[in-house]
Nucleic acid binder design. Structure first.
Lengths: 345, 345
DNA sequence: TTGAAAGCGCTAACAA
DNA sequence: TTGTTAGCGCTTTCAA
């Protein structure tokens, strides 16, 4: 690889001049010099050495994408269609802004922080952080951070004076709207399927509960179906749920992924969707569109969230102060075929 | 971030000694010095500055993953379940080997090469390269390269003395096996659905053709269904195909993705699978397991291919000469429910 | 067993 | 308008 120094020697000028031309700082460079350098640069296919540039400038042009995962996850996190769609949006936004992305996947947040520090990453996109992890990041990483779909104690962030941005969703309102739709279709015994009762699952549950209460409907405890998503447990768990699911007429699932799993478990057990049981999803991810019967669900703009989060982060990296701490995306109900209209019976 | 120099000053020793301890080059360091340094390192959470290290060593510890894409692709390439599963395997293998990965996605191979050069990437994983792109990479990137699922003119690579490794699949044999299975189920009018007749699609076609010929079956020209996967064209294309597909009893698809699209197009048109039409896929990707009816397909170890490719590349980076140029994975037929047995009728 | 110092390629403050 | 030079943090050769 050719260096600026070599070019400078070749052209009988200083590295500064060459560097200035490369960076377009051409106010104080004569036209003919500019042209001479430019031509030579093109001729030899000059590409800057990022490593050297970054060392000199104490930055990196790298945006770190942090996915904390668990070893026993049902499959690699990148295979989750929600994640991969989000990555698609982020990748594009990062690239278009002239940055590079580095993915940090680990169970161990300290390990992630070490890597991030090691690479002198310019900013971080944090997904689904828990309170304690968010604080550990905060303590050691002093550059811009944007959270995505994070449900931590934001009050605390304010207290400690952390400038943060979170890109999220109207989870509660959207879940409420979804359940109201189900009620409108004549359903009264409505189940809720989720992974565990925290974060996003909890928010959506609260919307579910609110809709039920406002409609004067009972929320039975055993209408809550908790999926065990730890590797081996998943099949047993689905099997159990499919057994119990006859108690309700519809199951509102906290994600399309879960809805898909449930539908397949039902088919295996001879339970027809939507004739015997209706199923509603949430997210409208790419898979949801493949299920048959086609899944009725709440659409959210996953790619858009990724892009927005990235753009916000880059703005912060470039020194702008974020206007809002919370950027909240709304959703849209997509009516397809997995929910039966009981009124028509 | 604390630097080696600071540590050296603090401990009253030279940077060399500190650096040596960090790298375990402790043959010539006294035990007490080692301990002193070690303890201090732990105490202050020392993490090396990758940028500086890489500049000094003229390397990067980065493995570049190159995905050449086209703007009009039907969705972002990372959303393709085949790709994301592959990335999952690679990500893990890269991380476990202590390397970092950087994704390069672009339509423009020169842009990719520039980035790769800029970051002084240690090695490259190239996916689905075309001949001309492979040559352009070869001309400008002189470090180890591993190809995945690439169908270029390997003879040329040998000629120019390029040491290469390609991780691929027994495409032709596997396709042949798949079609023989269909023939065994009593199918005689067998269609083939693919994107375009080159690379992987061509290899699998050849297996299809061979199986047909050996069984003395005709291969009608209009039994080849070509999917237009350019963004807007896809729906029209699927519609057309679903119209024509009644000419055959089964369609062998060159990928699970296409099989899924076809099945959905059929359902929309009232064609039942497998009662009216059988469908067979290829790849056994994560989506295939979600389709209903469950898709009969040829399983390949996608994650395994990613891991193998990564490990091969890292071996090359570390100076080992690859034993084989071609690493060929085999497949396994997965019988599910999308293919009818005509013998039973 | 330890240390001094050059150098990786680039940037930027300052000098000319 | 152009050039000199120190320095970014680390590695590594060579000397002590």
């Amino acid at each position: 690889m050719i260096t600026i120094k070599q070019i400078a020697t070749e052209l009988n000028m200083s590295t500064t001049t060459v560097s200035n031309v490369i960076h377009g700082k051409t106010k104080e460079v004569s036209k003919e010099t500019i042209k001479k350098v430019q031509d030579y640069l093109d001729k030899v296919h000059y590409v800057p050495n990022m490593t050297a540039r970054n060392l000199a400038q104490n930055q990196s042009n790298i945006i770190g994408i942090v996915l904390k995962t668990t070893e026993d996850r049902y499959s690699h996190i990148l295979c989750d269609p929600f994640v991969s769609e989000m990555m698609g949006g982020i990748e594009r936004a990062v690239r278009e802004a002239g940055y590079y992305m580095m993915l940090y996947i680990s169970e161990d947040i300290e390990e992630i922080i070490n890597h991030v520090a090691s690479w002198n990453v310019d900013g971080l996109l944090l997904f689904w952080m828990q309170d304690y992890d968010a604080i550990r990041v905060y303590k050691r990483f002093k550059k811009p951070v944007v959270y995505v779909d994070t449900y931590v104690n934001w009050g605390f962030m304010e207290e400690i004076g952390q400038t943060y941005v979170n890109v999220g969703l109207t989870d509660e309102e959207s879940a409420k709207e979804a359940v109201e739709y189900l009620i409108g279709k004549g359903h009264k015994k409505i189940g809720y399927l989720a992974e565990k009762m925290s974060d996003v699952n909890l928010c959506r549950y609260q919307g579910y509960e609110k809709a039920m209460k406002e409609a004067g409907l009972e929320v039975k405890e055993n209408w809550y179906y908790e999926l065990d998503t730890t590797g081996s447990g998943i099949d047993k768990s689905l099997n159990d749920i499919a057994q119990r699911v006859k108690e309700v007429t519809v199951v509102f699932c906290s994600s399309d992924n879960f809805a898909g799993m449930l539908m397949n478990a039902c088919i295996t057990k001879g339970i027809r969707v939507p004739e015997d049981l209706s199923v509603m999803g949430f997210d409208d991810n790419q898979n949801g569109r493949l299920f048959r019967p086609a899944l009725t669900t709440m659409h959210q703009d996953i790619t858009g969230k990724g892009i927005t989060a990235t753009k916000e982060l880059i703005k912060m990296i470039q020194g702008k102060v974020p206007k809002k701490h919370q950027i909240v995306f709304s959703t849209k109900l997509i009516e397809r075929l997995s929910v039966a209209d009981l009124n028509k019976k």
